[in-house]
Write a protein that binds this DNA or RNA. Structure first.
Lengths: 230, 230
DNA sequence: GCCTCCATGTCAAAATTATATCACAGACTT
DNA sequence: AAGTCTGTGATATAATTTTGACATGGAGGC
Protein backbone atom coordinates (compact mmCIF):
# COMPACT_ATOMS: atom_id res chain seq x y z
CA UNK A 1 0.00 0.00 0.00
CA UNK A 2 1.32 3.39 -0.88
CA UNK A 3 1.41 6.46 1.27
CA UNK A 4 -1.88 7.86 2.43
CA UNK A 5 -2.28 11.48 1.64
CA UNK A 6 -3.92 13.63 4.27
CA UNK A 7 -5.26 17.09 3.57
CA UNK A 8 -5.40 19.30 6.63
CA UNK A 9 -7.37 22.54 6.70
CA UNK A 10 -6.28 24.51 9.72
CA UNK A 11 -5.42 28.17 10.06
CA UNK A 12 -3.41 27.92 13.25
CA UNK A 13 0.13 27.28 12.14
CA UNK A 14 1.24 25.86 15.46
CA UNK A 15 -1.43 23.20 15.19
CA UNK A 16 -0.89 22.31 11.56
CA UNK A 17 2.76 21.94 12.44
CA UNK A 18 1.77 19.34 14.98
CA UNK A 19 -0.10 17.41 12.33
CA UNK A 20 2.94 17.34 10.15
CA UNK A 21 5.02 15.95 12.95
CA UNK A 22 2.41 13.42 14.01
CA UNK A 23 1.98 12.03 10.54
CA UNK A 24 5.57 12.21 9.44
CA UNK A 25 6.04 8.56 8.66
CA UNK A 26 6.27 5.99 5.94
CA UNK A 27 2.56 5.61 6.04
CA UNK A 28 1.31 9.15 5.69
CA UNK A 29 1.90 12.33 3.85
CA UNK A 30 0.37 15.60 4.96
CA UNK A 31 -0.52 18.70 3.03
CA UNK A 32 -1.78 21.69 4.99
CA UNK A 33 -4.03 24.51 3.84
CA UNK A 34 -4.83 27.61 5.80
CA UNK A 35 -8.11 28.15 4.10
CA UNK A 36 -10.66 25.80 2.59
CA UNK A 37 -10.42 27.70 -0.67
CA UNK A 38 -6.82 26.63 -1.00
CA UNK A 39 -7.82 23.01 -0.71
CA UNK A 40 -10.42 23.35 -3.43
CA UNK A 41 -7.80 24.90 -5.60
CA UNK A 42 -5.69 21.79 -5.05
CA UNK A 43 -8.59 19.56 -6.06
CA UNK A 44 -9.01 21.60 -9.20
CA UNK A 45 -5.43 20.77 -10.02
CA UNK A 46 -6.42 17.11 -9.85
CA UNK A 47 -4.62 16.57 -6.60
CA UNK A 48 -5.99 13.72 -4.60
CA UNK A 49 -6.09 12.66 -0.99
CA UNK A 50 -7.29 9.78 1.11
CA UNK A 51 -8.73 11.72 3.99
CA UNK A 52 -9.43 15.28 5.04
CA UNK A 53 -9.03 16.77 8.49
CA UNK A 54 -11.15 19.88 8.54
CA UNK A 55 -11.16 22.49 11.23
CA UNK A 56 -14.56 24.12 11.41
CA UNK A 57 -13.28 27.43 12.74
CA UNK A 58 -11.72 28.98 9.70
CA UNK A 59 -11.04 32.39 8.26
CA UNK A 60 -12.74 32.89 4.94
CA UNK A 61 -15.06 30.11 3.92
CA UNK A 62 -17.00 28.58 6.76
CA UNK A 63 -16.01 25.03 7.69
CA UNK A 64 -19.50 23.63 7.37
CA UNK A 65 -19.91 25.19 3.95
CA UNK A 66 -16.65 23.65 2.88
CA UNK A 67 -17.99 20.32 4.10
CA UNK A 68 -21.16 20.74 2.07
CA UNK A 69 -19.14 21.56 -1.00
CA UNK A 70 -16.94 18.54 -0.53
CA UNK A 71 -19.91 16.24 -0.18
CA UNK A 72 -21.53 17.81 -3.22
CA UNK A 73 -18.56 17.35 -5.52
CA UNK A 74 -18.61 14.14 -7.46
CA UNK A 75 -14.91 13.55 -7.12
CA UNK A 76 -14.67 14.54 -3.48
CA UNK A 77 -17.89 13.18 -2.00
CA UNK A 78 -16.38 9.85 -1.06
CA UNK A 79 -13.31 11.16 0.71
CA UNK A 80 -13.63 10.60 4.46
CA UNK A 81 -13.69 13.78 6.46
CA UNK A 82 -12.81 14.25 10.10
CA UNK A 83 -14.05 17.53 11.49
CA UNK A 84 -12.27 19.31 14.29
CA UNK A 85 -13.64 22.01 16.54
CA UNK A 86 -13.40 23.40 19.99
CA UNK A 87 -14.67 21.27 22.81
CA UNK A 88 -18.29 21.55 23.70
CA UNK A 89 -19.24 23.01 20.38
CA UNK A 90 -21.95 20.42 20.22
CA UNK A 91 -23.99 22.20 17.61
CA UNK A 92 -21.23 22.20 15.01
CA UNK A 93 -20.44 18.60 15.71
CA UNK A 94 -23.98 17.43 15.19
CA UNK A 95 -24.45 19.57 12.15
CA UNK A 96 -21.15 18.44 10.68
CA UNK A 97 -21.97 14.78 11.12
CA UNK A 98 -25.37 15.39 9.61
CA UNK A 99 -23.75 16.98 6.61
CA UNK A 100 -21.81 13.82 6.00
CA UNK A 101 -18.62 14.16 8.00
CA UNK A 102 -17.34 10.75 8.95
CA UNK A 103 -15.87 11.48 12.31
CA UNK A 104 -15.46 14.22 14.85
CA UNK A 105 -12.74 15.19 17.22
CA UNK A 106 -12.72 17.99 19.79
CA UNK A 107 -9.88 20.36 20.52
CA UNK A 108 -7.72 19.95 22.44
CA UNK A 109 -7.04 16.37 21.42
CA UNK A 110 -4.25 13.90 21.85
CA UNK A 111 -2.28 13.08 18.77
CA UNK A 112 -2.62 9.39 19.40
CA UNK A 113 -6.35 9.65 19.35
CA UNK A 114 -6.23 11.61 16.13
CA UNK A 115 -3.93 9.09 14.48
CA UNK A 116 -6.19 6.27 15.56
CA UNK A 117 -9.20 8.01 14.10
CA UNK A 118 -7.45 8.76 10.85
CA UNK A 119 -6.39 5.16 10.48
CA UNK A 120 -9.84 3.85 11.32
CA UNK A 121 -11.47 6.09 8.75
CA UNK A 122 -9.02 5.28 6.01
CA UNK A 123 -9.47 1.60 6.65
CA UNK A 124 -13.19 1.96 6.48
CA UNK A 125 -13.19 3.82 3.23
CA UNK A 126 -10.79 1.53 1.46
CA UNK A 127 -12.67 -1.45 2.73
CA UNK A 128 -16.03 -0.38 1.48
CA UNK A 129 -14.71 1.59 -1.44
CA UNK A 130 -14.85 -1.59 -3.32
CA UNK A 131 -12.81 -3.19 -5.98
CA UNK A 132 -16.03 -3.57 -7.81
CA UNK A 133 -17.86 -0.93 -9.77
CA UNK A 134 -21.24 -1.76 -11.12
CA UNK A 135 -23.61 0.25 -13.25
CA UNK A 136 -26.59 -1.29 -14.95
CA UNK A 137 -25.52 -4.56 -16.55
CA UNK A 138 -21.89 -3.60 -16.56
CA UNK A 139 -19.55 -4.65 -13.81
CA UNK A 140 -15.88 -3.90 -13.49
CA UNK A 141 -13.99 -6.05 -11.07
CA UNK A 142 -10.77 -4.26 -10.54
CA UNK A 143 -9.11 -6.89 -8.40
CA UNK A 144 -9.57 -9.48 -11.08
CA UNK A 145 -9.21 -6.94 -13.80
CA UNK A 146 -12.29 -8.36 -15.43
CA UNK A 147 -15.30 -6.78 -17.04
CA UNK A 148 -18.72 -8.37 -17.24
CA UNK A 149 -21.50 -7.20 -19.49
CA UNK A 150 -24.81 -8.81 -18.68
CA UNK A 151 -22.87 -11.69 -17.21
CA UNK A 152 -20.51 -12.17 -20.13
CA UNK A 153 -16.84 -11.55 -19.77
CA UNK A 154 -15.46 -9.05 -22.21
CA UNK A 155 -11.78 -8.89 -23.03
CA UNK A 156 -10.54 -5.34 -22.88
CA UNK A 157 -7.12 -4.02 -23.63
CA UNK A 158 -5.38 -1.95 -21.03
CA UNK A 159 -6.39 1.46 -22.34
CA UNK A 160 -9.94 0.38 -22.96
CA UNK A 161 -10.09 -0.91 -19.44
CA UNK A 162 -8.70 2.22 -17.87
CA UNK A 163 -11.03 4.31 -19.95
CA UNK A 164 -14.09 2.33 -18.96
CA UNK A 165 -13.13 2.34 -15.31
CA UNK A 166 -12.60 6.07 -15.33
CA UNK A 167 -15.95 6.75 -16.96
CA UNK A 168 -17.76 4.41 -14.61
CA UNK A 169 -16.16 5.91 -11.54
CA UNK A 170 -17.49 9.25 -12.67
CA UNK A 171 -20.76 7.66 -13.70
CA UNK A 172 -23.47 10.13 -14.78
CA UNK A 173 -20.94 12.91 -14.97
CA UNK A 174 -19.38 14.19 -18.10
CA UNK A 175 -15.68 13.64 -18.24
CA UNK A 176 -13.75 16.09 -20.34
CA UNK A 177 -11.60 14.84 -23.18
CA UNK A 178 -8.81 16.63 -21.47
CA UNK A 179 -9.40 14.87 -18.16
CA UNK A 180 -9.59 11.53 -19.87
CA UNK A 181 -6.36 12.11 -21.69
CA UNK A 182 -4.61 13.10 -18.49
CA UNK A 183 -5.97 10.19 -16.54
CA UNK A 184 -5.62 7.37 -19.01
CA UNK A 185 -2.74 8.64 -21.06
CA UNK A 186 -0.35 11.07 -19.49
CA UNK A 187 -0.64 13.60 -22.19
CA UNK A 188 0.41 17.05 -21.24
CA UNK A 189 -0.55 18.34 -24.64
CA UNK A 190 -3.99 17.99 -26.16
CA UNK A 191 -3.34 18.45 -29.81
CA UNK A 192 -5.71 17.06 -32.36
CA UNK A 193 -5.72 13.34 -32.07
CA UNK A 194 -8.17 10.64 -32.91
CA UNK A 195 -6.76 8.28 -30.36
CA UNK A 196 -9.44 8.80 -27.78
CA UNK A 197 -12.32 8.44 -30.25
CA UNK A 198 -10.68 5.30 -31.45
CA UNK A 199 -10.74 3.73 -28.04
CA UNK A 200 -14.23 4.92 -27.31
CA UNK A 201 -15.30 3.25 -30.51
CA UNK A 202 -13.76 -0.08 -29.69
CA UNK A 203 -15.04 0.07 -26.15
CA UNK A 204 -18.54 0.73 -27.41
CA UNK A 205 -18.42 -2.07 -29.86
CA UNK A 206 -17.12 -4.52 -27.28
CA UNK A 207 -19.87 -3.60 -24.86
CA UNK A 208 -22.43 -3.79 -27.66
CA UNK A 209 -21.67 -7.47 -28.11
CA UNK A 210 -23.79 -8.23 -25.08
CA UNK A 211 -26.13 -5.33 -24.58
CA UNK A 212 -28.50 -3.24 -26.58
CA UNK A 213 -28.21 -0.26 -24.30
CA UNK A 214 -25.92 2.62 -24.98
CA UNK A 215 -23.78 3.31 -21.98
CA UNK A 216 -21.19 5.66 -23.35
CA UNK A 217 -22.67 8.92 -24.45
CA UNK A 218 -20.94 11.61 -26.40
CA UNK A 219 -21.32 15.10 -25.06
CA UNK A 220 -20.44 17.20 -27.99
CA UNK A 221 -17.80 19.81 -27.39
CA UNK A 222 -17.05 18.50 -23.92
CA UNK A 223 -16.30 14.85 -23.58
CA UNK A 224 -18.01 11.59 -22.71
CA UNK A 225 -20.40 10.39 -20.09
CA UNK A 226 -21.14 6.94 -18.79
CA UNK A 227 -24.72 6.41 -17.81
CA UNK A 228 -27.26 3.65 -17.92
CA UNK A 229 -30.08 5.97 -18.87
CA UNK A 230 -30.22 7.44 -22.27
CA UNK B 1 -13.92 -27.37 -3.48
CA UNK B 2 -17.37 -28.01 -2.16
CA UNK B 3 -20.41 -25.82 -2.38
CA UNK B 4 -20.31 -22.55 -0.56
CA UNK B 5 -23.21 -22.06 1.77
CA UNK B 6 -24.72 -18.61 1.92
CA UNK B 7 -27.04 -17.45 4.66
CA UNK B 8 -29.33 -14.65 3.61
CA UNK B 9 -31.28 -12.61 6.11
CA UNK B 10 -33.92 -10.69 4.24
CA UNK B 11 -37.58 -10.18 5.04
CA UNK B 12 -38.70 -9.23 1.56
CA UNK B 13 -39.61 -12.50 -0.12
CA UNK B 14 -39.29 -11.13 -3.60
CA UNK B 15 -35.71 -10.19 -2.92
CA UNK B 16 -34.67 -13.36 -1.18
CA UNK B 17 -36.13 -15.17 -4.17
CA UNK B 18 -33.71 -13.26 -6.34
CA UNK B 19 -30.82 -14.40 -4.23
CA UNK B 20 -31.85 -17.97 -4.67
CA UNK B 21 -31.92 -17.57 -8.40
CA UNK B 22 -28.65 -15.67 -8.56
CA UNK B 23 -26.77 -18.24 -6.56
CA UNK B 24 -28.41 -21.31 -7.97
CA UNK B 25 -25.31 -22.98 -9.29
CA UNK B 26 -22.76 -25.68 -8.69
CA UNK B 27 -20.80 -23.29 -6.62
CA UNK B 28 -23.32 -21.97 -4.14
CA UNK B 29 -26.16 -22.96 -1.93
CA UNK B 30 -28.49 -20.43 -0.35
CA UNK B 31 -30.54 -20.55 2.78
CA UNK B 32 -32.85 -17.64 3.48
CA UNK B 33 -34.13 -16.38 6.80
CA UNK B 34 -36.79 -13.75 7.26
CA UNK B 35 -35.54 -12.71 10.63
CA UNK B 36 -32.15 -12.67 12.24
CA UNK B 37 -33.55 -14.77 15.07
CA UNK B 38 -34.17 -17.61 12.63
CA UNK B 39 -30.56 -17.55 11.56
CA UNK B 40 -29.34 -17.78 15.11
CA UNK B 41 -31.60 -20.72 15.60
CA UNK B 42 -29.91 -22.39 12.66
CA UNK B 43 -26.50 -21.74 14.17
CA UNK B 44 -27.71 -23.30 17.40
CA UNK B 45 -28.51 -26.38 15.40
CA UNK B 46 -24.86 -26.45 14.36
CA UNK B 47 -25.62 -25.38 10.84
CA UNK B 48 -22.73 -23.67 9.16
CA UNK B 49 -22.20 -21.23 6.36
CA UNK B 50 -19.38 -19.58 4.49
CA UNK B 51 -20.82 -16.11 4.25
CA UNK B 52 -23.78 -14.10 5.46
CA UNK B 53 -25.73 -11.52 3.52
CA UNK B 54 -27.50 -9.39 6.06
CA UNK B 55 -30.16 -6.84 5.31
CA UNK B 56 -30.07 -4.13 7.96
CA UNK B 57 -33.75 -3.27 7.67
CA UNK B 58 -35.43 -6.15 9.41
CA UNK B 59 -38.53 -6.86 11.38
CA UNK B 60 -37.75 -8.05 14.87
CA UNK B 61 -34.13 -7.89 15.80
CA UNK B 62 -32.30 -4.90 14.40
CA UNK B 63 -29.74 -5.65 11.74
CA UNK B 64 -26.88 -3.92 13.49
CA UNK B 65 -27.65 -5.81 16.69
CA UNK B 66 -27.58 -9.06 14.79
CA UNK B 67 -24.23 -8.05 13.40
CA UNK B 68 -22.89 -7.37 16.90
CA UNK B 69 -24.12 -10.74 18.06
CA UNK B 70 -22.52 -12.52 15.15
CA UNK B 71 -19.21 -10.83 15.76
CA UNK B 72 -19.44 -11.67 19.45
CA UNK B 73 -20.13 -15.36 18.96
CA UNK B 74 -17.04 -17.54 19.00
CA UNK B 75 -18.25 -19.80 16.24
CA UNK B 76 -19.67 -17.04 14.06
CA UNK B 77 -17.19 -14.21 14.48
CA UNK B 78 -15.04 -15.22 11.55
CA UNK B 79 -17.80 -15.62 9.00
CA UNK B 80 -17.63 -12.83 6.44
CA UNK B 81 -20.68 -10.62 6.46
CA UNK B 82 -21.99 -8.44 3.68
CA UNK B 83 -24.49 -5.89 4.85
CA UNK B 84 -27.24 -4.62 2.62
CA UNK B 85 -29.24 -1.48 3.07
CA UNK B 86 -31.05 1.18 1.14
CA UNK B 87 -28.94 3.51 -0.90
CA UNK B 88 -27.72 6.57 0.86
CA UNK B 89 -28.16 5.10 4.29
CA UNK B 90 -24.64 6.20 4.93
CA UNK B 91 -24.91 6.08 8.69
CA UNK B 92 -25.84 2.41 8.79
CA UNK B 93 -23.12 1.60 6.35
CA UNK B 94 -20.39 3.25 8.38
CA UNK B 95 -21.67 1.81 11.59
CA UNK B 96 -21.98 -1.63 10.12
CA UNK B 97 -18.44 -1.59 8.83
CA UNK B 98 -17.29 -0.35 12.21
CA UNK B 99 -19.01 -3.24 13.86
CA UNK B 100 -16.98 -5.60 11.74
CA UNK B 101 -18.99 -6.19 8.60
CA UNK B 102 -16.69 -7.10 5.74
CA UNK B 103 -18.41 -5.46 2.87
CA UNK B 104 -21.34 -3.32 2.02
CA UNK B 105 -23.76 -3.12 -0.82
CA UNK B 106 -26.55 -0.62 -1.38
CA UNK B 107 -30.02 -1.42 -2.61
CA UNK B 108 -30.88 -1.53 -5.36
CA UNK B 109 -27.91 -3.52 -6.56
CA UNK B 110 -27.08 -5.56 -9.58
CA UNK B 111 -26.88 -9.29 -9.06
CA UNK B 112 -23.55 -9.45 -10.79
CA UNK B 113 -22.07 -7.02 -8.37
CA UNK B 114 -23.45 -9.00 -5.49
CA UNK B 115 -22.06 -12.24 -6.82
CA UNK B 116 -18.69 -10.64 -7.38
CA UNK B 117 -18.64 -9.31 -3.85
CA UNK B 118 -19.67 -12.62 -2.37
CA UNK B 119 -16.92 -14.39 -4.26
CA UNK B 120 -14.34 -11.81 -3.32
CA UNK B 121 -15.20 -12.09 0.35
CA UNK B 122 -15.25 -15.85 0.40
CA UNK B 123 -11.89 -15.88 -1.27
CA UNK B 124 -10.50 -13.44 1.25
CA UNK B 125 -11.64 -15.51 4.18
CA UNK B 126 -10.44 -18.84 2.89
CA UNK B 127 -7.12 -17.36 1.94
CA UNK B 128 -6.16 -16.70 5.51
CA UNK B 129 -6.59 -20.35 6.26
CA UNK B 130 -4.06 -23.00 5.73
CA UNK B 131 -0.86 -24.47 4.61
CA UNK B 132 -2.46 -26.03 1.61
CA UNK B 133 -3.63 -24.03 -1.33
CA UNK B 134 -5.64 -25.79 -3.94
CA UNK B 135 -7.09 -24.51 -7.17
CA UNK B 136 -8.45 -26.80 -9.79
CA UNK B 137 -6.06 -29.71 -10.28
CA UNK B 138 -3.17 -27.83 -8.77
CA UNK B 139 -2.26 -28.15 -5.13
CA UNK B 140 0.53 -26.46 -3.25
CA UNK B 141 1.40 -27.99 0.07
CA UNK B 142 3.32 -25.31 1.79
CA UNK B 143 4.13 -27.36 4.86
CA UNK B 144 5.87 -30.01 2.79
CA UNK B 145 6.90 -27.61 0.09
CA UNK B 146 5.44 -29.85 -2.56
CA UNK B 147 3.34 -29.22 -5.61
CA UNK B 148 0.87 -31.62 -7.15
CA UNK B 149 -0.65 -31.28 -10.58
CA UNK B 150 -3.53 -33.65 -11.20
CA UNK B 151 -2.01 -35.94 -8.61
CA UNK B 152 1.49 -35.88 -10.03
CA UNK B 153 4.28 -34.32 -8.08
CA UNK B 154 6.13 -31.62 -9.93
CA UNK B 155 9.64 -30.52 -9.05
CA UNK B 156 9.85 -26.79 -8.87
CA UNK B 157 12.84 -24.64 -8.18
CA UNK B 158 12.69 -22.16 -5.36
CA UNK B 159 11.71 -19.14 -7.44
CA UNK B 160 9.17 -21.09 -9.41
CA UNK B 161 7.65 -22.28 -6.20
CA UNK B 162 7.42 -18.85 -4.66
CA UNK B 163 5.97 -17.50 -7.83
CA UNK B 164 3.33 -20.18 -8.07
CA UNK B 165 2.41 -19.83 -4.44
CA UNK B 166 2.06 -16.09 -4.72
CA UNK B 167 -0.17 -16.34 -7.76
CA UNK B 168 -2.32 -19.03 -6.22
CA UNK B 169 -2.77 -17.13 -3.00
CA UNK B 170 -4.14 -14.31 -5.04
CA UNK B 171 -6.08 -16.70 -7.20
CA UNK B 172 -8.37 -14.99 -9.71
CA UNK B 173 -6.78 -11.67 -8.99
CA UNK B 174 -4.27 -10.01 -11.18
CA UNK B 175 -0.88 -9.63 -9.60
CA UNK B 176 1.19 -6.80 -10.90
CA UNK B 177 4.63 -7.47 -12.31
CA UNK B 178 5.86 -5.01 -9.79
CA UNK B 179 4.24 -6.84 -6.90
CA UNK B 180 5.63 -10.13 -8.07
CA UNK B 181 9.10 -8.75 -8.35
CA UNK B 182 8.90 -7.29 -4.86
CA UNK B 183 7.49 -10.44 -3.35
CA UNK B 184 9.55 -13.12 -5.06
CA UNK B 185 12.71 -11.20 -5.78
CA UNK B 186 13.28 -8.17 -3.62
CA UNK B 187 13.72 -5.77 -6.40
CA UNK B 188 13.30 -2.20 -5.47
CA UNK B 189 14.06 -1.26 -9.02
CA UNK B 190 11.83 -2.39 -11.85
CA UNK B 191 13.84 -1.75 -14.95
CA UNK B 192 13.39 -3.89 -17.96
CA UNK B 193 14.05 -7.45 -17.07
CA UNK B 194 13.09 -10.68 -18.68
CA UNK B 195 13.64 -12.64 -15.54
CA UNK B 196 10.03 -12.82 -14.56
CA UNK B 197 8.84 -13.93 -18.02
CA UNK B 198 11.51 -16.56 -17.91
CA UNK B 199 10.18 -18.09 -14.74
CA UNK B 200 6.60 -17.81 -15.84
CA UNK B 201 7.56 -19.73 -18.92
CA UNK B 202 9.22 -22.55 -17.07
CA UNK B 203 6.42 -22.71 -14.55
CA UNK B 204 3.89 -22.94 -17.33
CA UNK B 205 5.75 -25.67 -19.08
CA UNK B 206 6.14 -27.69 -15.89
CA UNK B 207 2.46 -27.44 -15.13
CA UNK B 208 1.66 -28.33 -18.72
CA UNK B 209 3.30 -31.73 -18.26
CA UNK B 210 0.25 -32.95 -16.46
CA UNK B 211 -2.61 -30.74 -17.46
CA UNK B 212 -4.12 -29.33 -20.60
CA UNK B 213 -5.62 -26.37 -18.86
CA UNK B 214 -4.00 -22.98 -18.83
CA UNK B 215 -3.75 -21.72 -15.30
CA UNK B 216 -1.42 -18.81 -15.62
CA UNK B 217 -2.87 -16.02 -17.67
CA UNK B 218 -1.02 -12.95 -18.71
CA UNK B 219 -2.83 -9.68 -18.37
CA UNK B 220 -1.05 -7.48 -20.78
CA UNK B 221 0.17 -4.23 -19.36
CA UNK B 222 -0.59 -5.31 -15.82
CA UNK B 223 0.78 -8.64 -14.75
CA UNK B 224 -0.29 -12.24 -14.37
CA UNK B 225 -3.32 -13.97 -13.01
CA UNK B 226 -3.82 -17.51 -11.77
CA UNK B 227 -7.22 -18.91 -12.48
CA UNK B 228 -8.77 -22.21 -13.36
CA UNK B 229 -11.22 -20.69 -15.78
CA UNK B 230 -10.30 -19.68 -19.23
C1' DG C 1 -35.12 23.23 -45.16
C1' DC C 2 -30.41 23.55 -46.85
C1' DC C 3 -25.59 24.53 -46.29
C1' DT C 4 -21.36 24.87 -43.95
C1' DC C 5 -18.34 24.14 -40.24
C1' DC C 6 -16.31 21.46 -37.05
C1' DA C 7 -16.33 17.88 -33.57
C1' DT C 8 -16.59 12.97 -33.81
C1' DG C 9 -16.69 8.49 -35.97
C1' DT C 10 -14.46 5.07 -38.87
C1' DC C 11 -10.93 2.41 -41.08
C1' DA C 12 -6.76 0.09 -42.07
C1' DA C 13 -1.92 0.49 -42.17
C1' DA C 14 2.08 1.56 -39.48
C1' DA C 15 4.42 2.16 -35.26
C1' DT C 16 5.14 0.94 -30.81
C1' DT C 17 5.29 -1.95 -26.80
C1' DA C 18 4.82 -6.05 -23.92
C1' DT C 19 5.69 -10.51 -23.51
C1' DA C 20 7.68 -15.02 -25.09
C1' DT C 21 11.47 -17.58 -26.35
C1' DC C 22 16.18 -18.83 -26.92
C1' DA C 23 20.87 -19.50 -25.96
C1' DC C 24 24.31 -18.89 -22.98
C1' DA C 25 27.09 -17.66 -18.80
C1' DG C 26 28.00 -17.24 -13.90
C1' DA C 27 26.99 -19.08 -9.42
C1' DC C 28 26.17 -22.79 -6.56
C1' DT C 29 25.64 -27.86 -5.34
C1' DT C 30 26.88 -32.36 -5.24
C1' DA D 1 33.50 -31.76 -13.24
C1' DA D 2 28.75 -32.41 -14.15
C1' DG D 3 24.44 -30.74 -13.15
C1' DT D 4 21.14 -27.30 -11.49
C1' DC D 5 19.34 -22.86 -10.90
C1' DT D 6 19.17 -18.01 -12.14
C1' DG D 7 19.70 -13.91 -14.55
C1' DT D 8 20.66 -11.42 -18.97
C1' DG D 9 20.85 -9.83 -23.53
C1' DA D 10 19.28 -10.62 -28.34
C1' DT D 11 15.69 -11.63 -31.04
C1' DA D 12 10.99 -13.14 -32.29
C1' DT D 13 6.18 -12.84 -31.85
C1' DA D 14 1.97 -11.14 -30.77
C1' DA D 15 -0.96 -7.66 -29.12
C1' DT D 16 -2.05 -2.98 -28.60
C1' DT D 17 -1.86 1.78 -29.72
C1' DT D 18 -1.40 5.56 -32.71
C1' DT D 19 -1.98 8.02 -36.84
C1' DG D 20 -3.58 10.18 -40.95
C1' DA D 21 -7.00 10.24 -44.43
C1' DC D 22 -11.60 10.33 -45.03
C1' DA D 23 -16.69 9.89 -43.74
C1' DT D 24 -20.47 11.32 -40.99
C1' DG D 25 -23.64 13.96 -38.61
C1' DG D 26 -25.23 17.64 -35.36
C1' DA D 27 -25.88 22.79 -34.61
C1' DG D 28 -26.32 27.30 -36.04
C1' DG D 29 -26.78 30.70 -39.83
C1' DC D 30 -29.29 31.69 -43.82
Amino acid sequence: MNKHKIFVVEDDRSISGLYEIAFDSEEFEVECFERAEDMFRAFEKQEKCDIIILDLMLPGMNGLDALKLLKAGESTKSIPIIIVSAKGDEKDKVEGLNLGADDYIAKPFGMLELIARVKANIRKSTLAGGEIISVGEITVNNAEHRVLVAGNEVQLTLKEYKLLKLLMERCDNVVTREKILTAVWDYEYFGETRTLDMHIKSLRSKLAQFTEAQYIHTVRGVGYKFSKNK
